[in-house]
C-alpha cells in the first residue's frame, strides 16, 4: 500500500483535475458540445477507457461508491481492473449494484435500472465525432457543428435505408441534444438511446485519445435522429432472458456448444442477478434447478 501512497488522490494531480473539471463544467453548460481537454497519459492503453477514467478521477470523492461495467457486465477484465484501480488510488468503496453506486463508469451500456438524481454515468468514448465517417476534415466538422449543419447525419441514415431497407445503425446511433448539438452517444446499443432522454442522472462522456469531453445534464432532451417515414425504433428480442426471464431488456447471445445451441441472457449482469435472487427464473434457469 505504501507504494501507491506516492500518488495523489485518484491518481491525477490536482491541477489536471481542475483542468478536466473546467472542461466538464463547460460541457454541462453546452449540452452535447465536444469540449477539448488536455488528455493525460494513463497507466493503461488508449482504447481501455482512458477518457472515462480521467473523468471519473476528476469527479470522484472519498465518499463516492463506484460501479464499472463493460458491455453491461461487472465481471469482465476491463471492468474489474478499473474498479480495482480506483479502489487502490482513491480508496473508494466499489459496488456492482446499480442502485448503490454514485458514479458508474461504463463502456457501451446504460444499466437497465433507471438512474436517479445524484448519480453520474461516465461513458468511455472511442470516437466522439459523429460526422467523421462522412466528413473526415476536423476543421469542417467543427464548422458544421458551429453552424448547425447536420444534413450529413441524415445522409448516413439515408444510406442505411437505401442499402438495407431500414436504418441499420444499431449502435453509436446519433442523437440531437436539447435541440442543438448532434452527438455520438459512444458505441452503446441504440436500445439504450431512450434511457438518455430526460434522465435524472448526469451523463459525462470522455474520449481520451481524442481529447474531448461532452455531457448531457440531468433532464435534458435527447432525440434519436430519424426520418418521418422511417422512425427510430429500438431492438426487439424474440425471447426473454434464459436465466431470469426478463423482457424489454438488452440481451446478449451466448453460444452453448458447437451444434448451434445458444441462449439469450441479460447484458446487464447486475440486473439479472438481482432478478434471480428475487425469484425470477428463465427457461435455462429452470433446467439448472431441475438438474
Amino acid at each position: 500500500m505504501n507504494a501507491v501512497a506516492q500518488y495523489n488522490f485518484a491518481y491525477l494531480d490536482e491541477q489536471t483535475k481542475r483542468m478536466i473539471r473546467r472542461a466538464i463544467l463547460k460541457a454541462i453548460a453546452i449540452p452535447g458540445y465536444q469540449v477539448p481537454f488536455s488528455s493525460r497519459e494513463m497507466p493503461m492503453p488508449y482504447g481501455w477507457g482512458t477518457g472515462g477514467v480521467q473523468v471519473t478521477a476528476s469527479i470522484i470523492g472519498p465518499d463516492d461508491v463506484l460501479k464499472v461495467i463493460d458491455q453491461g457486465a461487472d465481471d469482465t477484465t476491463n471492468a474489474v481492473s478499473i474498479r480495482a484501480f480506483f479502489a487502490k488510488v482513491a480508496q473508494v468503496e466499489t459496488t456492482t449494484h446499480t442502485a448503490d453506486a454514485t458514479i458508474i463508469q461504463t463502456r457501451h451500456r446504460i444499466p437497465e435500472k433507471p438512474l436517479g438524481q445524484g448519480q453520474i454515468l461516465v461513458y468511455q468514448v472511442p470516437i466522439p465525432e459523429p460526422l467523421r465517417f462522412l466528413e473526415p476534415r476536423e476543421t469542417e466538422t467543427r464548422k458544421m457543428h458551429a453552424l448547425e449543419e447536420y444534413g450529413l447525419m441524415h445522409v448516413k441514415l439515408y444510406e442505411d435505408i437505401a442499402r438495407h431497407g431500414r436504418i441499420a445503425t444499431t449502435y453509436a446511433y446519433p442523437v440531437k441534444v436539447e435541440g442543438r448539438y448532434v452527438m455520438d452517444p459512444s458505441p452503446t446499443p441504440k436500445f439504450d438511446n431512450p434511457k438518455m432522454h430526460m434522465s435524472a442522472a448526469l451523463q459525462l462522456f470522455g474520449a481520451g485519445r481524442e481529447h474531448r469531453i461532452y455531457a448531457v445534464p440531468p433532464y435534458t432532451e435527447v432525440v434519436s435522429l430519424d426520418f418521418e417515414d422511417h422512425p427510430f425504433t429500438i431492438q426487439h428480442f424474440e425471447e426473454p432472458c434464459a436465466l431470469c426471464g426478463a423482457e424489454q431488456v438488452y440481451l446478449d447471445e451466448v453460444i452453448l456448444d458447437d451444434r448451434g445451441g445458444h441462449m439469450y441472457v441479460c447484458s446487464d449482469t447486475d440486473n439479472c442477478e438481482e432478478r434471480r435472487s428475487a425469484g425470477h427464473v428463465g427457461t435455462l434457469g429452470m433446467q439448472e434447478a431441475a438438474e
Binding site: 441524415h154 435505408i161 430519424d226 426520418f227 417515414d229 422511417h230
Partner: peptide, 10 residues
C-alpha cells in the same frame, strides 16, 4: 442538399 435544408422524409 434536401436533407441539409430539412427534408426528413426518406
Amino acid at each position: 442538399r434536401l436533407m441539409a435544408v430539412g427534408d426528413r422524409n426518406y
